[in-house]
Write a protein that binds this DNA or RNA. Structure first.
Length: 467
RNA sequence: GCGGCUAUAGCAUAAUGGUUAGUGCACUUGGUUGUGGUCCAAGCUAUGAGGGUUCGAUUCCCUCUAGCCGCCCCA
């Protein structure tokens, strides 16, 4: 840091990030064209230290509950063969059609940044012969996903999902418990969330239903918007969650998917609802709820912010459902499965809106101020002693003036500051300053840790509650 | 991918077709020698990028980029 801003800040202005583009790389307009500052890619962002408190809360809550429900963590690669997603998500879906980061890698393979992780989880289930483990195999993951979508609040091109997947069980109770887990996460986070739930049956009964649905809307074609006409063509199920007034009205007379479920599907769904009901989970049966990916079957559900719902963009914080056909599509043995994923930035955003912002790390209780080389040498060691004793100490080794260090201590709001200067080093002492009163006492440096620990006792005692 | 709105420093903002683009917060340094919270002073940092109109543009126009909102879609 000896050079500091003088030299650093204004200089770099002139230097973009390309120093050595060996290839001819047209020196003209870099597609962004901003030569002044390095610019973030659209839809990508830095999660800053100030936000990490919330992120930690979310990550920790997810991890704790995953463990409590005995899900096992799996880390899946971010890059997969493109074909994995093309085959599973559905040809007609936007995710596949226009949102995938898909490219050819140096070995000339078509690869894609994962737009979601369920397909990868299913792939891993097959690859590692997990069907030979006690079923169901319960996996959870947390990591970044990528979709080349138009960015908006709560929607990014790189976004984080935490997901829970259960392979190998078809019992309705499994679906229900997944809903319970999701809701528990929100509960622990202090968010008021409700679940919307529906069943879209098997591929077969859905097919019959869709024929009927399309036929119905064909007769009312004139009243449909362009968007809805397109939906009718491309992905008729989607018309169910159309926001068009006219369409909504038509929907009231439209065939309902629930009436088209075969007996088994119906029974399954009823059981799921019973279990959910039993758990006192705020849910609503939404016969128009459908999901965007093709692999879903039977139960589908979505976690929606309950407070001022509808008003907030991106109030769906997560969603999931059953995907009994997925493993088979990928070449595995027919395996029932069910899972859900949570959108982490949306959850973080909801926490922010509620003013929930836990500290990123425990607040330091002591500040160590040093003057002179000898003090620094002793101080570095002393710092370790404190750390080992479990007392969080802060320092400003980057500053020399005592004044600046006390300012830093003050900012951190520590109750005690240790001051070690030339004189103290010679005497084998150290100053303990009470920041509130300004009172100082000179003590034997060897007893510093024990003394500080004692002084801190009352402070520490009324802390643990909120840590 | 479509439509709308926006773009001044780290953040929040003011102003203007014409000398040094103002303020607040933050940050750095100082108000004598090793003592914080208040106060004072100084310093640092900005018109997103490129082009056009103009004698002159941060201001007007265009394009790009980015953000936000709505749609599409989704987490």
């Amino acid at each position: 840091m000896p050079f500091r801003k003088k030299s650093a800040a204004p200089k770099k202005v002139s230097v973009p990030e390309k120093e050595s583009a060996p290839v001819a790389a047209a020196p003209t307009e870099e597609e962004g064209g901003n030569s002044k500052n390095p610019e973030l890619l659209r839809g990508f962002r830095d999660i800053m230290p100030e936000e990490q408190g919330r992120w930690n809360l979310v990550r920790d809550t997810v991890r704790k509950l995953a463990e409590a429900y005995s899900f096992d963590r799996i880390d899946l690669p971010i890059l997969e063969r493109a074909d994995l997603f093309l085959r599973t998500l559905g040809k007609g879906t936007d995710v596949v059609e226009k949102e995938m980061y898909i490219f050819t890698d140096p070995s000339n393979r078509s690869v894609a940044l994962r737009p979601e992780a369920t397909a990868s989880a299913a792939r891993a289930y097959i690859n590692h012969g997990m069907l030979d483990r006690p079923q169901p195999v319960k996996l959870w993951y947390l990591g970044p996903m990528f979709r080349h979508d138009r960015p908006q609040a709560g929607r990014y091109r790189q976004f984080y999902q935490a997901g829970f997947e259960s392979f190998g069980a078809e019992e309705p109770i499994v679906d229900a418990q997944l809903v319970v887990i999701g809701m528990q996460i929100f509960k622990d986070l202090g968010l008021d969330v409700k679940v919307e739930i529906n069943s879209i049956g098997t591929a077969e009964c859905r097919k019959a239903y869709l024929a009927e649905l399309v036929a119905y809307f064909r007769t009312h074609r004139a009243k449909l918007s362009e968007d809805d006409k397109r939906r009718l063509q491309k992905n008729p199920l989607r018309i169910l969650d159309s926001k068009e007034e006219a369409t909504r009205e038509l929907l009231e007379g439209a065939p309902q998917i629930l009436n088209w479920l075969d007996e088994k599907s119906k029974e399954h769904f009823m059981k799921v609802l019973e279990f959910v009901e039993e758990m006192d989970i705020p849910y609503s049966l939404n016969p128009y709820l459908v999901r965007g990916l093709d692999y879903y079957t039977h139960t589908v559900f979505e976690f929606v912010l309950a407070e001022d719902q509808g008003e907030v963009a991106q109030s769906a914080l997560g969603g999931g459902g059953r995907y009994d056909g997925l493993v088979e599509v990928l070449g595995g043995r027919p395996t029932p499965a069910c899972g859900f994923a949570l959108g982490l930035e949306r959850i973080v955003r909801a926490l922010e809106a509620k003013g929930i912002n836990p500290p990123e790390h425990p607040a330091p209780l002591v500040f160590f101020a040093q003057l002179g080389d000898a003090a620094r040498r002793v101080g570095l060691k002393l710092y370790e002693e404190f750390r080992r004793s479990g007392i969080p100490v802060a320092e400003a080794f980057g500053k020399n003036a005592l004044k600046a260090q006390l300012e830093a201590a003050n900012r951190l709001n520590v109750p005690l500051t240790l001051i070690l200067g030339q004189k103290e080093v010679l005497d084998g002492t150290i100053i303990i300053r009470d920041m509130e009163s300004g009172a100082q006492e000179i003590v034997d440096v060897k007893k510093a840790v024990a003394l500080v620990a004692r002084k801190l006792q009352p402070v520490v005692l009324d802390k643990p509650a909120d840590l």
